[in-house]
């Protein structure tokens, strides 16, 4: 395996791990549900995407072809993350989860 490929894979892994961790920190320390929603939908999705990309690079330079499965998983995650965020926000508004103090505007209820 070439030197450059190793650096790329290591960098992608570290970026992915970092974003996954940041998403989880956001989930743990942001003040209310609606702000917590932002961490996982963006940071975690990108983190796992980067790890997946590292896997694609690793297997395509080492032996067997480009990994289609990884790309399918990544596309699937990127398509489903907003959908789950949306449906969870709807559920939270339906239950009446209170937004944090200082939130401007109102969640509406249909």
């Amino acid at each position: 395996m070439s030197e450059i490929a190793e650096y790329v894979i290591a960098a992608l892994l570290l970026i992915g791990g970092g974003f996954t961790l940041i998403g989880a920190i956001g989930l743990a320390r942001l003040p209310d549900f609606f702000t917590r929603l932002h961490g996982p939908t963006k940071a975690t999705t990108v983190g796992v995407g980067a790890i997946m990309l590292a896997s694609v690079v690793y297997f395509s330079v080492s032996h067997d072809g480009i990994g289609i499965s990884e790309i399918l998983i990544t596309v699937f995650l990127f398509m489903t993350a907003p959908v789950s965020a949306n449906i969870l926000a709807k559920a939270a508004m339906h239950i009446g989860v209170k937004p944090m103090d200082g939130t401007r505007g109102n969640p509406w209820e249909q």
Partner: peptide, 18 residues
């Protein structure tokens, strides 16, 4: 993700809005 990461790691409180 970079901007969200910066906000998560800073100690400033976010100012959310609907």
């Amino acid at each position: 993700s970079f901007s969200v990461a910066r906000l998560i790691l800073s100690t400033r409180k976010p100012e959310p809005m609907f």
